[in-house]
Computed example of a mutant assay.
Amino acid sequence: MKPFTFKQFTVYQDRCAMKIGTDGVLLGTWAPLQGTESTILDIGTGTGIIALIIAQRSNAETIDALEIDTDAFEQAVDNFETSPWGDRLFCYHASFQEFTEEIEGKYDFILSNPPFFSENYKTEHQKRNAARFQDSLPFEHLLYGVSKLMTNDGKFAVILPFREEQNFIALAKQYSLYAHKITRVKGNSSSKIKRSMIVFGFHQVAIATNELIIENSRHHYTQEYIDLTKDFYLNM
């Protein structure tokens, strides 16, 4: 498995069950940072791709990441250390439930590309299952932890299958987390909505919604997608 080279950093992924995909890059590049964040957390970092994108985009003093799988954790640490932002990136090896109970600080911005395949179908690859299925981090546990770890004016950004959007928003309200912005992602103009990227906060506001289309045609990207990712992808 070859490393994935971005403009300012390289991500090795041979030891990770879940490889780099569009979802992580989308969330990392789209997340609406204010520029005032000093502490940021990436839950379920995998290769570390989201945390690395955020490190390039922000001046946050502390960017923590969390990964439960040993191999993925070690690879994320390596990817962080070889990046230009190794002094600001730190990875914890623990479950989110353990982390929530033990950590004392709070975060200005939290991100997660969580396990979201809730169907009964499983592969024989145990690590890939853990990375893809909700069993390892149910939405309730994720939202509870976020509500405990986020500052009062903080934000939480997540990417989900579109079919999970309304359920997740309703569940978030039980933890006093309210949707602020929703961007629905389509592969092309004629395809169905595939993903929802949502930003939550503790304050209720009018929800801003929009749509992101990735391609006009195969490998011909929309200007909006190019603008989002051009600072990262080599071919943009």
Rank of each mutant, 00 (worst) to 15 (best):
P3Q: 09
F4I: 13
K7I: 13
R15Y: 12
R15W: 09
A17Q: 10
T22H: 05
G24C: 13
G24Q: 09
V25F: 00
V25N: 01
L27Q: 12
G28T: 05
T29L: 01
A31L: 14
P32G: 01
G35R: 06
E37C: 05
S38H: 12
T39W: 01
T39Y: 04
I40G: 02
G46N: 04
G48T: 02
I49A: 01
I49T: 13
I50H: 03
I53Q: 03
I53C: 05
R57W: 07
N59S: 13
A60G: 06
A60W: 01
T62R: 12
A65N: 00
L66T: 03
D69W: 04
D71Y: 11
D71H: 13
D71V: 04
A76Q: 06
N79G: 09
F80M: 12
F80C: 12
E81V: 06
S83F: 05
S83G: 12
S83W: 04
D87N: 14
R88N: 08
L89C: 13
C91T: 14
C91R: 02
Y92D: 11
A94N: 14
E98K: 14
E98N: 15
F99E: 07
T100Y: 04
E102R: 15
I103M: 12
F109L: 15
F109S: 00
S112F: 04
Y121N: 10
Y121I: 11
Y121K: 13
K122Y: 11
T123K: 11
E124R: 08
Q126M: 07
K127L: 07
R132N: 06
F133I: 04
Q134E: 11
S136D: 08
P138Q: 09
P138R: 08
E140K: 14
E140V: 08
L143W: 02
G145C: 03
S147H: 06
S147V: 05
L149Y: 01
M150I: 15
F156L: 10
L160Y: 07
L160C: 08
P161N: 13
P161F: 13
E164W: 01
E165Y: 00
E165P: 00
L171T: 05
K173I: 10
K173R: 15
S176I: 07
Y178R: 12
A179E: 11
H180A: 13
K181A: 01
R184G: 01
V185S: 01
S190K: 15
S196C: 10
S196P: 03
V199I: 15
F202T: 10
V205K: 15
I207Y: 08
T209K: 15
T209C: 13
N210W: 00
I213M: 09
E215H: 10
Y221K: 10
Y221V: 12
T222W: 12
Q223M: 10
Q223F: 03
F232R: 06
L234H: 03
M236E: 02
